[in-house]
Amino acid sequence: MKRNAWTEEIRFTKEGGHAMVRFSIALALAGLALLAVTGIARAAEEGSIELKAVAEVEVEVLREDGGTDVERVKASTVVPGDEVIYTIYYTNVGDKTADKVVVTNPLPGEMVYVDGSATGDGAAVTFSVDGGKTYGIPGDLTVLDADGNERPATADDYTHIRWTFQTPVSSGEGGYVDFRARLA
């Protein structure tokens, strides 16, 4: 499955009194408008997962006793070299258990993944170095260097991060996955 390559075949059917929107994934394009619309429509549906992304930075704040605490604040602005913590919260707001849950986060173009920073309880973390076509674990990934020779990929090469949940997410259950990236 590739991102942004969706054909939507939306069928509204009556099923247990709930509207159901079904995507059959095949080819073609999908606009953001469609995604927005479907996103809103989904909130009350069964088996729905809601995602919320948060970007934060750590700041040191002075305590009254002269020490410092590290606090997280919303990353509204950053400077080159700053590390941003991206947290993606998920909740199964539907009635049914969601299976084969996979969360994917393309790295913003200006950001470089901080090696070893991705976490996610109960999820296997893999990375893509080819724009999300294929995924692998860090030791297995390779890229071509300037001379066309294959070399082991480093965190600088990652384009996408993926969390593949090993167990189903039951109704009402939620959690988060996160990673850090540095602004180039």
Binding site: W6, L35, I49, A53, T97, D99, V101
Partner: peptide, 16 residues
């Protein structure tokens, strides 16, 4: 930055 989730509750895959 935007993440995406894909899951299934049966036969079909959903995404958001």
């Amino acid at each position: 930055n935007e993440a995406r989730v894909v899951w299934t509750t049966g036969a079909a895959l959903d995404t958001l």
